[in-house]
Amino acid sequence: MSNRSKIFFKGVADVSPLMIPVVPFGIIFGVLAIDLGLSPITTMAMSIIIFGGASQIIFLQLFSAGASSLVILSSVGAVNSRHLLYGAVLSEHMSDFKMTWKIIISYFLVDQAFAVTNSYLKKSSDKDKAFHSFGAGATCWVIWQITTIIGIFLGSIIPEKLGLSFAVPLTFLALIVDDLRKLINVIVIIISGLIATVGYEIIPFKAYVIVAATSGLIAAMILTKFKGLNNG
């Protein structure tokens, strides 16, 4: 096995344990998309083009609520904006990468791939280290597409009267469980949740997600600064 293959499969092995919680998430997305009336082709196109679990679930939530296209695109863009931070962090390790590799890796740079890629690039000086990023990202992509297809299949055979739309908020609750360990996180979650709940009916253009998220960020900034002043 060549050195490039070894590095590629190391990326696959490093990210594989992180794929366990992705499987039910991808299936739920596929099921919900079909349940909300999207075609299998549209659902797969979303998974290929957006390729971001949280963003795609938010898309479905806003779509089902009748939000405008501008609000949907803005919300999805806001959620995916964290990838700009990922790119900034990895840029110092990728200065010697060819532009082709940078484009490929930027597409595959989801949360799990970033976690293992960042850890590997910090320690590696191998000239073929880009293959690790490719292996990790490609694994995430394949798993997400396969689970989406499984969800599409299941969604087409589950009776409409079952109504699985409730799984959207439950999925997000599962994602934030780990954040409940810190008081600041709990406060920010409560503030964002209250604003989103109240704003659902009164904020125009269904922009409650953007307003709630922005309010949460401002609250987090204030609380973090206040905590820093107290510690100082």
Rank of each mutant, 00 (worst) to 15 (best):
S5T: 04
F9D: 02
F9E: 06
G11D: 03
V12F: 05
A13H: 10
V15T: 10
P17S: 03
P17A: 00
M19L: 08
P21S: 04
F25D: 02
G26K: 02
I27P: 00
I27D: 04
I28A: 00
I28Q: 02
V31Y: 05
A33M: 01
I34G: 07
I34Y: 11
L38R: 00
L38N: 10
P40I: 10
T42Q: 15
T43W: 11
I48M: 12
I48F: 02
I49P: 08
I50Y: 06
G53M: 00
A54Q: 01
A54F: 06
A54M: 05
S55T: 10
I57V: 07
L62E: 01
G66M: 14
S68E: 04
S68Y: 10
V76N: 08
V76I: 07
V76G: 00
A78S: 09
R82A: 03
R82L: 10
L85N: 09
L85T: 14
A88I: 12
V89C: 11
H93T: 14
M94S: 09
M94I: 11
D96Y: 13
K102S: 03
I104A: 07
L109T: 03
A113R: 00
F114G: 01
N118T: 15
Y120R: 11
L121K: 12
K122D: 04
K122H: 11
K123V: 11
S124T: 15
S124C: 14
K127F: 15
K129V: 15
K129R: 15
F134L: 14
G135T: 12
V142Q: 15
W144R: 00
Q145T: 02
I146L: 07
I146T: 10
T148W: 03
T148D: 09
T148G: 03
I149G: 07
G151R: 02
S156R: 11
I157T: 14
L162P: 01
G163A: 13
L175Y: 00
I176E: 07
D178H: 13
D178F: 11
R181C: 06
N185E: 14
V188R: 01
I190E: 10
I191C: 00
G193N: 03
I195R: 02
A196T: 12
T197A: 13
T197G: 13
G199H: 01
E201I: 13
I202S: 13
F205Q: 15
V209S: 05
V211C: 14
A213M: 14
A213T: 14
I218N: 11
A219G: 08
K227F: 01
G228D: 15
N231W: 12
N231C: 12
